[in-house]
């Protein structure tokens, strides 16, 4: 009996292993059973919504099922995430997210779940931050702005999206490393902040390049400095933070997430499909036209980056006293 059992255990284990592999393979081949819903917390036409739609189109063809963008606004993404977490962890619901989600988690406004309950599938694009000034401002270059700010602490008003947001935190980080003091003027959206600077009401705006490129071309705004590692094609003359002597390189990022607990093979299918979608000519064309940077990052690295961003934001928000 004992011998029989001893023989049976390995056999059972092999059967079990084979079974799971088989079943898993079956599941994998089975994965997109029906349409995939891509949630988006930002209104149609916003940068992350544009990314979601540009990605959904080729991804539908690759996965063979419709990928439908569904807008679920509210609480800067909290509502969309709560909805995602309420769905089954089968990969049929994904979420087009941004770095702003990290700010949200860091702020502690969400009590019902943590950032760890999401699976960060893939980072799709990065978008540098840019400082731009109105022509009437008492400075024309970033260097002049820093000098001016050193002489007049707190007098340089910088407008931008939100409070304790990615844009705010990046501006504070820049100011700290440059050794200056700025006053942040929060706006409910990037476009509103750009409008205020165009009107000369706030001398400097901190935003993403796509929102100001046309105004720069028309001579209504002067780009001062950019947070990317290298100069970007849209503003070839504009210095990077590093060139200014401010040791800082950082980006806004956008990507795709889903619920944690989605089987690994399904995550792989989704990741591969979106990666393939990013490599289509249409998607590349859109990236180029909107002055975005391709920012592919795989599941593991992206998860790590997101976690680090949340922790860093927590620290800065504490320092800011928010």
């Amino acid at each position: 009996m004992e011998v029989f059992l001893r023989k049976l255990v390995p056999v059972a284990m092999v059967v079990y292993l084979l079974g799971t592999i088989f079943l898993a393979a079956g599941q994998a081949a089975d994965f997109p059973k029906r349409k995939i819903t891509m949630l988006c917390h930002s209104s149609p036409g916003s940068p992350v919504d544009l990314m979601a739609r540009q990605l959904a189109e080729p991804a539908s063809k690759i996965l063979g099922v419709p990928v439908v963008v569904e807008t679920k606004t509210g609480g800067a993404g909290a509502v969309a995430m709560a909805y995602l977490l309420g769905q089954e962890a089968d990969g049929h619901t994904v979420y087009a997210m941004t770095r702003s989600n990290a700010d949200l988690f860091a702020s502690g406004q969400i009590k019902d779940f943590t950032w760890k309950e999401l699976a960060y599938l893939i980072r799709v694009q990065t978008d540098p931050f840019v400082l731009a000034a109105h022509p009437s401002a008492p400075f024309r270059t970033a260097k002049e702005m820093i000098d001016y700010a050193k002489k007049n602490p707190g007098k340089v008003k910088v407008g931008g999206f939100g409070s304790a947001s990615a844009h705010h935190i990046m501006a504070i980080k820049f100011a700290k490393k440059a050794g200056i003091e700025i006053t942040w003027v929060p706006y409910p959206g990037g476009a509103a902040a750009v409008t205020a600077t165009l009107g000369g009401h706030v001398p400097v705006v901190h935003t993403n390049p796509a929102t100001i490129i046309k105004h720069v071309q028309a001579g209504n705004l002067i780009p001062l400095a950019i947070s990317a590692g290298n100069r970007i094609a849209a503003f070839p003359e504009t210095l990077t933070y590093k060139e200014l002597g401010v040791a800082l390189e950082d980006y806004h990022f956008r990507g795709i997430a889903t619920k944690k607990g989605v089987p690994d093979d399904v995550i792989k299918i989704l990741h591969d499909a979106f990666k393939k979608a990013m490599e289509t000519p249409d998607f590349k064309e859109y990236t180029k036209k909107n002055d975005l940077l391709p920012g592919y990052m795989n599941h593991e690295d992206f998860t790590k980056l997101f976690g680090e961003t949340v922790e860093e934001n927590k620290k800065i928000q504490k320092e800011l006293g928010l």
């Binding site: 209104s43 544009l50 046309k214 105004h215 071309q217």
Partner: peptide, 21 residues
């Protein structure tokens, strides 16, 4: 407004970026 923001987004998707010019 929200609506014109959506319109702007749609135009950007079609490759036209409205600006001062």
């Amino acid at each position: 407004s929200n609506v014109t923001a959506v319109m702007l987004g749609a135009l950007m998707m079609l490759g036209l970026q409205p600006g001062p010019l």
